[in-house]
Design a protein around this nucleic acid. Structure first.
Lengths: 257, 257
DNA sequence: CGTCGACTTGACTAAAATCAAACCCGGTGG
DNA sequence: CCACCGGGTTTGATTTTAGTCAAGTCGACG
């Protein structure tokens, strides 16, 4: 346990190599000792059945989480009683950093399916980072990247056209799947139409119609939660507000019925 | 190091006491030496005439900024060529942390009026923080709080009713003015209707009509950019989606002829 | 085979966008 | 002093879009 074991490194690589925190560990130049310390912090693969809650609004900042298997959503319930989805968290992605600012969680995290997470007690992490400058730097970056996701959300919500929001949403999911090494052109959405609607600030029916429309226009194929991206270029153009030129109008076909 | 120089502390307090970074310095238990080091980093009160740009999309992360006098906006131009406002930054507030995640700025910062900023080279700041655990902790908090503002923005954009967005916007500005020690019930907006609209994801005319509506309902008084909040309670109720129950209808007053 | 929940589709309605005109106000110059 | 701008803002009329309500369909599962 006290000997400098290169196996430790191998073990961490194996267990965390697919994980968004690898950026935190691997390029940081941590030595075997630090690595063991860091590894001891990670509580691996806790199971959470579908619908279970990892943290609630107002909970003190305890851990940050990495979806290890299955996906999660973070939500807030506004005073009028309706639920807004703040984000979806795919396997390998990090969440729970919303409490860093105030010390308390501003939203609630729910498992979208039976799932597992890795959990990192934040105080522990920060303490180690304070002794490891390179890790501190990585930690800042990770937090910043998590804020970037909020930016993307703002970007989506600022679009006035429902079609733009939906196209952008699909492209964003696709890109994130690609990043974790999954097929980016054919995938299964982990969330319901209702949850997508609450994320995009639209009515459920509008999302459904939007999907149908994209299918009619030949950009995607939809079958329930199964999505196939047929024409990424056109989808991108739609997300960009169909800016004139590269998407001829005759692409639009007459509506059925 | 051990020589306590109260003058330095007093000077920093004076110069930065109204500034959002005071949370970074004052309660951190920094000693005189650290304080001087920190102080040397701050480049104070650079002037920026109205409309001038502090940083652009793609610029490498250089500094974080504190609006010292005057206000700023951060904006992105989407592929369709329309400008979206990501945030407004009032005197004393911090901005520019959007580049922490990727190392490059994702938006552009523009002075809303003739203005001054304090500038803190980020690398410098991070370097000092790595040697000062308490400052590191404060830095994390500051970044987290900056992400909280994005959350608030998402919250506003998720509202379906234009009236809700507008009420929420006014309350948020009011609260932030209160926090920097300015009158919270009577103030001058630093931004145009157009900029508000681009922040709220609405048309300019819708914002204007919303203001008029709030005035007709006796909640506020508007005269150009001059706002007086008359009935904060009703405004809050409107922001909350006018949820029935605790706001008796007779609270709404008849409009002044 | 029936049931339930998730999804789709249709008809209608409400709301905000758009287009267009007027207005207000501070500044300028006759 | 007043006429005349011009930008930002307000208001009005109309159109477009998404929301709402309601009915149907699909698909998984017991």
């Amino acid at each position: 346990m006290s000997q400098p074991i290169p196996l430790d490194l191998a073990r961490l690589r194996r267990t965390c190599s697919e994980c968004s925190l690898r950026a935190l560990c691997l390029p940081a130049g941590v030595d075997a000792d630090d690595l063991r310390r860091l590894e001891s912090v990670v509580q691996r693969r806790k199971p959470y059945p579908r619908g279970s809650v990892l943290f609630r609004v107002g909970d003190p900042l305890g851990s940050v989480y990495v979806a290890s298997e299955g996906s999660y959503k973070t939500v807030v319930v506004n005073p009028a009683g309706e639920e807004h989805v703040l984000g979806f968290h795919l396997p390998g992605e990090l969440f729970g950093l919303d409490a860093v600012g105030s010390g308390r969680h501003r939203c609630e995290a729910v498992a979208l399916s039976d799932a597992y997470v890795c959990e990192l007690p934040f105080a522990h992490l920060a303490e180690i980072a304070s002794r490891l400058p390179s890790l501190q730097h990585q930690l800042l970056r990770i937090i910043g990247q998590s804020a970037d996701l909020d930016h993307d959300h703002v970007d989506v919500l600022s679009r006035r056209q429902a079609g733009e929001r939906i196209a952008l949403f699909l492209l964003s999911i696709s890109e994130r799947l690609r990043r974790i090494g999954r097929p980016a052109d054919e995938f299964q959405l982990p969330m319901s139409r209702d949850e997508i609607a609450r994320y995009l600030g639209l009515a459920l029916e509008t999302v459904s119609r939007g999907f149908t429309r994209l299918q009619d226009d030949g950009m995607i194929e939809v079958r329930g939660r199964r999505i196939v991206i047929l024409d990424r270029h056109a989808l991108q153009a739609m997300a960009d507000g169909c800016l004139g030129g590269d998407l001829p109008p005759q692409r639009r076909q007459n509506q059925p019925g």
